[in-house]
Design a protein around this nucleic acid. Structure first.
Lengths: 225, 225
DNA sequence: TAATAGCAATGAAAATTCTTGTAGTTGAAG
DNA sequence: CTTCAACTACAAGAATTTTCATTGCTATTA
């Protein structure tokens, strides 16, 4: 987890570096705006901390320049300038948070965590089911195998979702018919077989590593291996 | 764009409501924690503002409860309690930002924008939504495609905005009818179809790169690709 | 009063879903 | 090793559902 600190005052730098390293961040330091820009563009940081008052280029300008290249990286401004207008300037140049010195280190850490939890996948409500190299996208209602997008109809999607959510367990035709088709009594239909066949053609056909397996006399099982 | 404010002091509520409505937010108010929880769970908000000191259940507890159900929605705590420990408690209960009263309204707006630009995943500069080469101008209530201005009626605009904010996700007719038309029970109407058709004629007709796609049996999806 | 917007109704067209029927497999008993 | 019954796979097309575009009616606005 890399973090970039752009700050010219040596005392502050030392204070931040020490505290952040205790939190297991790998800290890069830039002492002026130009150096900050170069590092920010060259490397990928988890988060960037910017002082406003810097030699050569101030923090607002630097922030804007970083934003042109990188919309994503979280940026927190740290500065002694505490008026509302200063803060607005900071947010306008693309900062995500603005913290006025002096502050307690604990608050900085809390704000860093609040920001990174959003970008760094902990939350990432990416609505997908992944098993082996098959990805089912619940939002888009499609699947992906070996990087290829596979469009699914409503029933195909419902069946595949059911199988994936019951990964590693044999599910009987009766159970599938109930949960996916709402068929609660025996109608003598073979829809399940037919749709299993359709799904196999779509997701298992061109691949060695088959995911849908038949358990004769028992049902089907979705499993990786 | 809906916003939830949980706050018991009437003066503060009025101040916030007025200011936020000027920014085109649709504001829901809860006067205590219980009511806040109910609303937060029932509706989908762009962002939630929480006071800490509330009747029945304090803001920290409420925040935690909301987080159990909804990891995604941005939450800002607004409170007179300004010690670092108070702030830490706020962040620990899952808040994204913590603003100490008194604050200037402009700062609140800046912080709301900073947060929402992240969660919506949509690049929102000024008051516009941009996806691919389609620009929706929230202020002017019109759209632009390939440099050509497209005028929209109120309903057309509401529908397009809803689709764009749900970019990459299949939305069902029922969901669209609820969110855009406030139709909460099945009326057997096909307004949604009709308006999708109208929108397609306006924004997708003369272009190869279609943005509105039909997912048969499931709904529509707005997606770039 | 004319023009525009919003909505229900319609039927043709397209896509999906399901049934039917045949061919192929499996595995246990002889 | 064969045979056979039960089980499964698959293709084709019929039946159903869903979508799309148009029309005409009503409400609203200029």
């Amino acid at each position: 987890m890399k973090i970039l600190v752009v700050e010219d005052e040596l005392k502050v730098v030392e204070f931040l570096k020490k505290g952040l390293e205790e939190q297991d961040y790998e800290v890069d330091i830039a002492f002026d705006g130009q150096m900050g820009e170069r590092l920010a563009v060259k490397n990928t940081y988890e988060i960037i901390l910017l002082d406003v008052i810097l030699p050569y280029m101030n923090g607002y300008e630097l922030c804007k320049k970083i934003r042109v290249k990188n919309q994503k990286v979280p940026i927190i401004m740290l500065t002694a300038l505490g008026t509302t207008d200063d803060k607005l300037t900071g947010f306008d140049s693309g900062a995500d948070d603005y913290l006025v010195k002096p502050f307690e280190f604990k608050e900085l850490i809390a704000r860093i965590k609040a920001l990174t939890k959003r970008t760094s996948g902990i939350i990432q409500t990416q609505n997908t089911l992944k098993i082996s190299d098959l990805i089912l996208d619940i939002d888009k209602k499609n699947a992906q195998r070996c990087g290829k997008i596979i469009e699914l109809t409503a029933k195909e999607f419902a069946l595949l979702e059911f199988l994936m959510r019951n990964k590693g367990r044999v599910v009987s035709r009766v159970e599938i018919a109930e949960k996916v088709w709402d068929i609660t009594f025996d109608t003598g239909t073979n829809v399940v077989d037919v749709y299993i066949n359709i799904l196999r053609k779509k997701i298992d056909k061109d691949v060695d590593n088959k995911l849908i397996h038949t358990k004769i006399g028992q049902g089907y099982i979705f499993d990786d291996k």
